[in-house]
Amino acid sequence: MTENHRLIHATPDQVWDVISDGWLYPLWVVGAARMRDVDESWPDVGSKLHHSVGSWPLLLDDETEVVDATPGRSITLRARAWPAGEARVHLRLDASGVDTDVRIDEVPVSGPAALMPPPLHAPALKWRNSETLRRLAFVAENRS
C-alpha cells in the first residue's frame, strides 16, 4: 500500500463536492485525460466514470467504478487503466478544524502493475498520488 496525505484548506464537504462531480475527475486525477460519460448515480456504489487515459493521440477508453462510499467521508474506487491494469484507490477525508486532511492509498490489483513488487511500483504511485492531491487541493480551495 502506498499512502499520501495532504491538508486541503477547504471543508470536507467542499472536497467531497469536487470528488462527487465526476466531470471534474480529469482535473485532479493524474493520468485521466478526458471524460466521456458519468453515470447519473455517481458516486453511489456501483456507479462508473467513463474516461480516457493517456495523451492524444494515444488515448485509451476505460472506466472507474465506486466500490464503497460514505458521502463526505470516504470513497473506494476500482480504477481501470489498461494495459497497465487495475488498482483499488481509497480516499479518506478527515476534518481538521476548517480544513480537511485527505489521505489516498492505491494498490494495484490486476494486470502488469500488480505483478511488480511494491519497491518497483511504489515510488511512481507515491509521486502520482502526491500530484493528484495537489490538484484536488487546487480545485477544492478555489472552487466557488
Rank of each mutant, 00 (worst) to 15 (best):
I8L: 12
R103K: 15
D62Q: 07
T100D: 01
V53Y: 00
E40Q: 13
D94P: 00
T76L: 05
D17Q: 13
A113W: 15
D37N: 11
R134M: 08
L125R: 09
A114W: 06
P43N: 13
R34H: 02
L91W: 06
T76W: 02
K126T: 08
L93M: 13
V139A: 03
D94G: 00
D61Y: 02
R34C: 03
S130H: 10
L24Q: 15
P83T: 14
G97E: 01
R78Y: 11
V107R: 12
R92D: 11
G72W: 01
W82E: 03
H121M: 04
H90V: 15
P57N: 13
S130E: 14
R128L: 13
H50I: 11
V53K: 01
R103Q: 08
E3Q: 14
N129M: 12
F138L: 14
S74Y: 01
G97N: 04
E65C: 03
R128I: 12
E131V: 14
M116Y: 03
V30C: 08
D99H: 05
V18C: 06
M116F: 10
P118M: 11
L125G: 00
E131C: 06
V98L: 05
N142L: 04
V29C: 10
G54P: 07
D101A: 12
A84P: 00
S74W: 00
A114M: 07
K126I: 02
V15W: 05
T11A: 08
G111W: 02
V66R: 04
A69W: 03
L93W: 00
L24G: 05
L136E: 08
V139Q: 08
S130W: 07
M1E: 15
E63S: 14
A33V: 01
E40T: 12
D101I: 11
L125E: 10
